[in-house]
C-alpha cells in the first residue's frame, strides 16, 4: 500500500524536522512530503535534511493551496492513500497511523482527526481553547452540521487521511481561502464517506497561531459565506473546474511514479 504523508508548512523551521522524524519513526514505509508554502525561513532546507521530499510553492498561497498541492502530488504519484498533519507539532504521528488504518480498512473515504473526544463538549482534557475560538468552533459546528446533515466536532482539524477518491476531488476542487470547512462540505456533498475519530493533540512546538480576535471574526464571517455558497454549488462538477482551472489534462499527462521509491 503506497501511502504519502504530507505536511503543509509555512515558516515552521523550528518544528518541521521533529514532525518528519516522528512520522519516519512511526511509519517507516510511507513517503513524506513537505509542502513548503512560500516560507521565508529554513523550512525547506530543514525538511530536506530530515529526509522528506519538498514541494516548494514559489510564494505563499495559503493553506488551501498548500493542501491541494499535497493531494495533487499524491494523485499524480499514484499513491493509494494519503494523510496530512500540521507542521507545528500539534499532531502526534501515532494518531495519524490510526486515521490511516480507518481508510486502509475502507471504513471511510476521508477520516478527520478530532481533538474532541466527547462530541458535546467544546474542549477536552488536552485542549482548552480561548473564548473567541470556542465561539468560532460552535458557529462552524452548527452551520456545517446544517449544511452536511452530519455531525462534526472538529471542523477545522488539519489532520486527515484519505483515499484516491478524495485525492481526485480535492486536487480539482479545493478552496484556496477556506481549506478545512469547505472541503468537508464538498466531500459530503459528493457522497464520500467522511468519518471523524477522536485523537490526542499536543501543544505546538514552535511558531505562533495566526489567529487574533479580529482575524477570528473575519475567519468566521468568511467561513459562513463559504458554507452558504457551498450549499448552492453544483453537486457533480466532474468536468468543470471550481475556479476555471481544470486539473484533468495535467493528471492524465502525469506519468506514474517509478517503483522502488517507497523506501
Amino acid at each position: 500500500m503506497r501511502t504519502l504523508v504530507f505536511i503543509p508548512a509555512w515558516n515552521e523551521e523550528a518544528a518541521v524536522a521533529d514532525v518528519i522524524e516522528g512520522i519516519r519513526g512511526r511509519m517507516p514505509d510511507v513517503d513524506v512530503l513537505v509542502v513548503d508554502d512560500g516560507s521565508t525561513d529554513a523550512t525547506a532546507t530543514r525538511a530536506r535534511a530530515a529526509g522528506a521530499l519538498v514541494a516548494s510553492l514559489p510564494f505563499n498561497q495559503g493553506l488551501g493551496a498548500a493542501l491541494q498541492t499535497g493531494y495533487l502530488y499524491a494523485l499524480r504519484g499514484g499513491y493509494e492513500y494519503c494523510a496530512h498533519l500540521d507542521a507545528d507539532g500539534q499532531h502526534p504521528p501515532a494518531e495519524v497511523v490510526r486515521l490511516l488504518e480507518e481508510v486502509y480498512a475502507d471504513r471511510a473515504d476521508l477520516v478527520i482527526g478530532s481533538r474532541y473526544s466527547d462530541p458535546g463538549r467544546a474542549e477536552s482534557d488536552d485542549y482548552r481553547p480561548t473564548l473567541s475560538r470556542r465561539i468560532g468552533i460552535g458557529v462552524f459546528r452548527f452551520f456545517l452540521t446544517l449544511a452536511t446533515r452530519q455531525r462534526f466536532t472538529d471542523t477545522t482539524s488539519g489532520m486527515r487521511a484519505a483515499n484516491r477518491g478524495v485525492m481526485e476531488l480535492f486536487s480539482k476542487h479545493y478552496s484556496p481561502d477556506f481549506a478545512e470547512i469547505e472541503s468537508l462540505q464538498l466531500a459530503v456533498r459528493q457522497g464520500l464517506r467522511v468519518e471523524e475519530i477522536p485523537v490526542r493533540m499536543l501543544d505546538r512546538l514552535g511558531g505562533t497561531s495566526f489567529l487574533t480576535p479580529l482575524r477570528s471574526a473575519f475567519f468566521i464571517f468568511k467561513g459562513l459565506i463559504v458554507l452558504l455558497v457551498g450549499m448552492f454549488r453544483p453537486r457533480v462538477p466532474a468536468s468543470v473546474g471550481a475556479h476555471g482551472v481544470s486539473a484533468d489534462d495535467a493528471i492524465e499527462a502525469g506519468p506514474p511514479k517509478e517503483e522502488g521509491m517507497e523506501q
Partner: peptide, 9 residues
C-alpha cells in the same frame, strides 16, 4: 505554482 512545486519534488 503547484505544478512547479510538484515538478521539483
Amino acid at each position: 505554482a503547484q505544478e512547479r512545486a510538484i515538478e521539483a519534488a
